[in-house]
Amino acid sequence: MRLSDSLGRASLSGISILALIFLAFPLLVVIGISFTTTEYLRFPPVGLTWKWYARFFHDTSFVESLFTSAKLALSATAGALLLGVPAGLVLARKRFPGRQAISALFLSPLVLPTIVLGVAILQYASTMGFARTFWALFVGHVVLVMPYVMRTTLASLSGFDIAQEEAAQDLGATPLQTFFLVTLPQIKPGVIAGALFAFIISWIDVEVAVFNSTPELITIPVKMFNYIQFNVDPIIAAVSAITIYVAIVAVLLIDVTVGIEKATTRRE
């Protein structure tokens, strides 16, 4: 290999390693701080203690918002699956005028400013009389996360051999049986990946939730956001660290079910 080749490769690797450190470091810092024994933020941490985690779990308002977030993310994911998978199925299998436009509609929440979606839900819910309720959060988050379910569902269906569905029907399966016995088992990895994405997007959202929360009904990111405006102490690092652990678990789950590379980059 020529010298210029190795030099080019070395500098590329150098930039890449720096970029990866850039990506990992802030998260490591947060995790590190969460174990410090000092009363103020300190990195590298001094000593090693679980007390900030203990304090977090003793603060019922934090734990409650953790539950609110989990409940919201789970139900929004379920809603997005129930709506997104059948719609993806029809869009992938049927040819009809306006199909492109409807696909675009399903994916459009992805590119529109999330903060505008947040205020739109607030304003709409106010006129309809359900502002700052769980339902407002729920519908906002279903709209927010549906594109992720749609995208992976459509991608798995496009790689799926339609002859298999025909074979199932040919052998006497009704359309419903065909879906549950033949199609779903095979697109399952894609659907699971989409569901995990949806869960996480809901779980970490601030822009939609911040407009539709009350002191009693508040998700963990919004709770943290409000907390951070007035207090900066290692509790917040502990809470942050917990959400990072959830993220790591989700990423590993996706890696195990479909492979993280395949799930996050789309091969056409």
Binding site: L20, L27, I204, I236, T243, A247, I254
Partner: peptide, 19 residues
């Protein structure tokens, strides 16, 4: 490497900004 790239994506922007 992919896990390192995606994990921040799965973490709330508050946590990341906090870092």
């Amino acid at each position: 490497i992919y896990i390192v790239i995606v994990t921040p994506l799965f973490t709330s922007s508050i946590v990341r900004a906090f870092g």
